[in-house]
Amino acid sequence: MKIQVSETDFDSGAEIASLHAGQPKVGAVASFVGLVRDINEGDDVSTLTLEHYPAMTEKSLRDIVDEAMGRWSLLDVTVIHRVGKLQPLDRIVFVGVASGHRGDAFAACEFIMDYLKTRAPFWKKEGTPQGERWVEARATDDEAAERWQQSSKKDPA
């Protein structure tokens, strides 16, 4: 398992490769990359600043990955989240999941992102022509996370 929270960028391809390098039991790697968009709520976005709660951030990500490992048969997981000042086109977050088969990899990757969105202590502030503003949490993110609680462990849909 690799959990990383830092200001520095990451190489998605290298992260994916390291999830299966020398691991012949890995039959599937699913990954997600989150990026900074140049528009939100109809306004141009020029900067995105990510604040976090350093003492809690890595622990909360580790807890989310532990829960995913309890639900699915996973061989390795990498979660990278950037903090600090970013701009459109920048990478924000990487989640990579290695498993024997694609079903577990796909499901766990989506689960980790849904829980990260609603449980990991990060906050986004975006710069727009009207000034800076805090990004509001979305109800759709809560709904996405909740469906994992309603469903059986192996069948989230």
């Binding site: 992102m113 990991a120 906050w123």
Partner: peptide, 12 residues
């Protein structure tokens, strides 16, 4: 203890 108070999170 350490208690933190914050808005709903918006990472990812």
């Amino acid at each position: 203890d350490e208690v933190a108070i914050f808005p709903p999170v918006t990472g990812g």
